[in-house]
Nucleic acid binder design. Structure first.
Length: 1061
RNA sequence: GGGCGAUUAGCUCAGUUGGUUAGAGCGCACGGAUCACACCCGUGAGGUCACAGGUUCGAACCCUGUAUCGCCCA
């Protein structure tokens, strides 16, 4: 049968074979019993970090998913009910952007050339393509996900969860409308995400502008008439609403609270104290201090830092620009009355900059202009400088206490923070502090903690089309209202809107959805109205409001027959769906409601990601999956998304699903190229896992990645173009050779074993007939099983892989297989050797399977054919399985006792002697075919038992050292013309090979080595402090060492002198 | 600017609670078509553990500082 196996390991063949087996039965599927009664199996759950559907997976994903698969396969073999939930992320902005780019370059069209539904359909098509590719890649890597559960963040199941979570937040008063500065691209007029802003160093200027004080101030007898602010963006001064200075500034006590008259505009603005302001210091290393005047103009509407200052001091916000970044008084600037201000309206921001600087110059208010290189954010799309632009966005309040959670989690702030225990941030932070959540390696807990502690409200709306549409309807009411004599207009408007609001709620009640809606009214007047926000728990609410909106839009009067027909149809449909009463009530709303519209925006992509651990399992429904697999066990991810993703999953898990989604977070390395650079498309240094699989095989790739995964180091992976079998030139890495070589070795060793296992008979095994080599390899196996299991439990990856690989290669192949060869020719011994061989190989396959699943599965199948029963009768049994994927993880070999362990020393001595002989053979250039005669003199006290032992194992030495014979004894004289290898406790001689010159060199070298070691030990022992303070056994060890070294040195010297004579 | 990490052989990396002469793989050198494997076997050379201080009987390991590189956050 063995001859069926090719001489060289062929990944493709074996990958195909293994996949056929794995998909022939639901090995990867985790059953969630509808009723969890009875003895329940332990579960183990990992949800995949869903890859973005923007692009195919790269080698970083390959690492991430390899590690997850290792954990999953390990636990599955340990008989856990194991679920690995797969899926992909819609990645709203990233995906929309790549599709927009593609459409622009291929068709010359922009997003706005499409209807929203059309465009979304285009993105959907892209998603379908890449989702399929990603799943193909994951399967090619061998990921044992529960494929029939594959989810997508925008599929029906996840969408339902998003809706439910959003509603819950809305109802709990945690979602609100607020203002925020966004990265605005004035050229394309779109919002950019932070990572779409490219920072470029620009050679610009600092302009020093004088702002006159409203009234002169006396400081130390001097009359101060103005303050000087330094700015890189003079055009924003039109929106200044304060001048800030550091309270530590000596001038502060005279100036804080005073007013400044803003040039051009004439606005009176206060001087305020804020520690953000950099104190001036011409000597400082800090460039900002050198350029600072100590006075900072504050423009909350046009600068993120200023926005913060504005928030802290409740400053007015004056937006002086239109969306195209021209100066405008139509977007919040209400005091542009002066002729100078009027003349600036309509100017582009850079034109305005020139005009304003010129104006200051002419008015003698321009104090200085200095060169200044600074970072300016540019749009990665239009390459124009981005404009921080004020806009209305939806937020989640993350530090607002949630009353009803107080019972469960307590009240008040988490110690040393401003985070309430029962706020969303608290829900994420507390589990870490309580050790319910841990990071591996634990240093990443800091990142998580720090981020949560200074967390600010989460802006969740995005001005995009691809994503979960925000399920909020904004209803505004008519302007018509009566004003009571004692009311302001605003108060009257508020009262009026409140009345309207009750009508809307009454209407929804008549529609039968009053339990399914939540609403809130804007506390602020926006464009003359207080918008009323309505969120429905179910889609029915959307239907109602959409139809209502259509019906209200019909204003009567002269309309076409067509429109009238449509209107009537709408009415009829509404009546049919929601009843006559509700329909009649629309009359009450007709004159009151001005607009009723569904929000245009979509949710931040992390919103649905935050729900991923339970949305995929059917939350909010109480599904068997949730009961069985939630909370899960571990999240495995890269460190870049600890804040954006991990924290939000914990937060939402606790908030929505009543528990944190996992207890362990394993953070793995990042993969860099050979120069330590991040892999990226633009550098062209990325590696496609499919290419690596093509060039080296999936197992080889996995082996290499796992063997490089440690807690501390990022992975450097030299990238090299390689010609693939199909002729393409693609990036792969020579590092994968390591894995491929290993697989080839495993393949061939197994092939050898299989060839020798014909006719194996488990009944012919007799444990008392095992040789020392059998017991030795079993004791090494026992050690390996223990270590590998332990280190996998602790999220080590390189360690278990290296331990099992070394056991396989350096012990099993290099020694055991070599010693087994002659036994296979001996009918007596063959049966014993066969059974041990089959058993050990079986266990090796099991240990390696999580790392290199394909090849181990392939070999396991062959092993099942040739040696279906692998056991050591009376000692151990490898439990049968049709497939390795479902086989049992190796159990501890309890029969390996002290006696076995003592025998390890025997083999160690044998190996040491063999190495000595091989060394001499090499140094004297003696061909392997030349059989040597060797003599071994044992010199240590009490050497009798070792000598006997070695004599018993003589054959093992003769066999692997290429000897004709060896004499082993005590007090044997050195034969004439023999080369020597000298140790503390023994001297080995190889007869009749002497080359005096070479031998002298060898011995001299040895002598130096020993002398050096001896000196070091002597000086240590000469140190009194060492004798007193070091642990006694350390001192004793040193004494023994010295004695041994002295003796060794004596022998070496003796041999040297003999050479002379 | 703040935080985290790294710096050990030519390269990529290990190095457990401080304790013999600091390890592996690749590469290099030498030898090898032996009936599993040349993607192999055997042997060997190769290190001032980034630098400077400190703690200690003893430091690659602990502490302080410096330099360089990487990442995250502002």
């Amino acid at each position: 049968m063995g001859e069926q196996l090719s001489k060289v390991y062929e990944p493709k063949t074996i990958e195909k074979l293994a996949n056929e087996i794995w998909f022939s039965r639901p090995y990867f599927h985790a059953e969630a019993p509808p009723d969890r009664g009875g003895p329940s199996q332990k579960t183990y759950t990992i949800v995949i970090p869903p890859p973005n559907v923007t692009a195919p997976l790269h080698v970083g994903h390959a690492l991430n998913n390899t590690l997850q698969d290792v954990l999953i396969r390990f636990r599955r073999m340990q008989n856990y009910n194991t679920l690995w939930m797969p899926g992909t992320d819609h990645a709203s902005i990233a995906t929309q952007t790549v599709v927009e780019k593609r459409i622009l370059s291929e068709e010359g069209k922009r997003r706005t050339d499409f209807k929203r539904e059309e465009f979304v359909a285009r993105v959907q098509a892209w998603k379908d393509e890449y989702e399929a590719r990603i799943i193909e890649q994951l399967q090619a890597m061998g990921c044992s996900c529960d494929w029939q559960r594959t989810r997508f963040t925008m599929d029906e199941v996840c969408t339902k969860a998003v809706r439910a979570a959003f509603f819950k937040l809305f109802k709990d008063g945690l979602i609100y409308r607020g203002k925020r500065l966004v990265n605005w691209d004035p050229a394309t007029q779109t919002v950019l995400a932070d990572d779409e802003v490219e920072h470029e160093t620009v050679q610009g200027h600092f302009w020093y502008l004088r702002y006159p004080l409203a009234e002169p101030v006396q400081i130390a007898g001097q009359s101060i008439e103005y303050v000087t602010v330094a700015t890189t963006r003079p055009e924003t001064m039109l929106g200044d609403t304060a001048v800030a200075m550091n309270p530590a500034d000596k001038r502060a006590e005279y100036l804080i609270g005073k007013k400044v008259r803003l040039p051009i505009v004439g606005r009176l603005i206060p001087i305020i104290a804020d520690e953000h302001v950099v104190l001036p210091n011409p000597e400082s290393d800090d460039e900002k201090a050198r350029f600072s005047t100590g006075f900072l103009k504050v423009t909350p509407a046009h600068d993120p830092d200023d926005w913060e200052i504005g928030q802290r001091h409740s400053l007015e916000v004056v937006n002086v620009m239109a969306p195209d970044a021209s100066i405008s008084d139509k977007y919040g600037w209400e005091d542009a009355h002066s002729p100078e201000a009027q003349s600036l309206l309509g100017m582009d921001r850079f034109e305005a900059r020139k005009a304003i600087v010129e104006w200051f110059r002419q008015e003698n208010l321009l104090e200085d202009v200095r060169e200044y290189a600074h970072e300016v954010g540019h749009s990665y799309r239009s390459h124009v400088p981005i404009e921080p632009y004020l806009s209305d966005q939806w937020y989640i309040a993350v530090k607002k206490p949630i009353e009803y959670l107080g019972e469960k989690f307590g009240q008040g702030l988490i110690e040393e923070t401003d985070v309430p225990v029962n706020s969303l941030a608290g829900l994420a932070l507390k589990p870490l502090l309580d050790d319910r959540l841990r990071f591996i390696p634990d240093r990443y807990a800091k990142t998580y903690q720090a981020w949560l502690e200074k967390l600010r409200d989460w802006p969740i709306s995005r001005q995009l089309w691809w994503g979960h549409r925000i399920p909020v309807w904004t209803i505004t009411f008519s302007h018509a209202h009566y004003k009571h004599s004692d009311e302001t207009h605003e108060e009257a408007k508020k009262r009026h809107d409140q009345e309207c609001e009750t009508h809307v709620l009454k209407f929804l009640q008549l529609c039968g959805v009053d339990e399914e809606v939540s609403s809130y009214r804007s506390p602020q007047l926006i464009k003359g109205t207080f918008p009323f926000y309505v969120c429905g728990k179910i889609e029915k609410v959307d239907d109602i409001l959409e139809m209502l909106s259509k019906i209200l839009n019909h204003k009567g009067g002269r309309v076409s027959r067509e429109q009238l027909k449509k209107y009537k149809a709408n009415n009829d449909e509404f009546k049919a769906k929601f009843g006559e009463d509700a329909f009649k009530y629309i009359g009450n709303l007709r004159e009151r409601i001005r607009t009723c519209t569904l929000d245009e925006d979509v949710l931040d992509t992390w919103f649905s990601s935050a729900l991923w651990p339970f949305s995929t399992m059917g939350w909010p429904d109480d599904t068997p999956e949730l009961k069985t697999f939630y909370p899960g066990d571990v999240l495995c991810t890269a460190r870049e998304i600890i804040t954006l993703w991990v924290s939000r999953m914990v937060m939402m898990g606790q908030y929505c699903a009543d528990d944190i989604p996992f207890s362990d977070v394993y953070i793995h390395a990042m993969i860099q190229d050979g120069e330590g650079r991040k892999m990226s498309k633009s550098l062209g240094n990325g590696i496609d896992p499919l290419v690596a699989i093509n060039s080296h095989g999936a197992d080889a790739m996995r082996f290499t990645l796992a063997s490089m995964t440690t807690d501390t180091q990022d992975i450097r992976m030299p990238v090299q173009k390689m010609k693939l079998p199909d002729g393409r030139e693609e990036n792969t890495s020579p590092k994968f050779d390591v894995g491929r070589n290993f697989c080839n070795k495993l393949w061939n060793a197994s092939r050898f074993a299989l060839m020798n296992l014909e006719g194996i008979d488990p009944d012919k095994f007799d444990k008392d007939k095992m040789t020392v080599t059998d017991r030795w390899i079993l004791s090494r196996l026992e050690y390996t099983i223990e270590e590998v299991t332990k280190s996998l439990d602790n999220y080590k990856f390189n360690e278990p892989l290296n331990i099992s690989a070394r056991f396989f290669w350096n012990e099993f192949c290099d020694w055991y297989l070599e010693w087994v060869k002659p036994r296979m020719q001996d009918e007596q011994q063959k049966s014993i050797a066969q059974n041990v061989l089959a058993f050990v190989l079986d266990q090796i396959l099991r240990l390696l399977h999580p790392f290199i699943p394909f090849i181990t599965e392939g070999i396991f199948q062959k092993l099942n054919e040739i040696a279906p029963i692998r056991q050591l009768r009376g000692l151990a049994e490898a439990k049968k399985s049709d497939a390795l994927v479902a086989a049992e993880w190796p159990k501890q070999l309890d029969f390996v006792d002290e006696k076995y362990k003592q025998e390890r020393a025997s083999i160690w001595n044998v190996q040491s002697v063999i190495r000595d002989i091989r060394n001499i053979r090499n140094e004297y250039n003696i061909p392997p075919s030349h059989k040597l005669k060797a003599t071994l003199n044992m010199s240590a006290p009490g050497a009798e038992s070792v000598t006997k032992d070695l004599n018993d194992n003589k054959e093992l030495i003769i066999q692997l050292a290429g000897l004709a014979e060896i004499e082993i004894g005590i007090d044997i004289k050195k034969p004439k013309n023999a080369a020597a290898a000298i140790h503390e406790d023994r001297q080995l001689y190889v007869d009749d090979v002497i080359d005096f010159e070479a031998e002298r060199n060898r011995l001299e070298k040895k002598k130096q080595q020993v002398e050096k070691a001896k000196k070091a030990t002597e000086s240590k022992l000469a140190n009194k402090d060492f004798l007193i303070k070091a642990k006694p056994q350390v001192v004793a060890q040193a004494r023994d060492k010295l004695a041994e070294l002295s003796e060794q040195l004596e022998v070496v010297e003796k041999h040297l002198s003999e050479l002379e004579s």
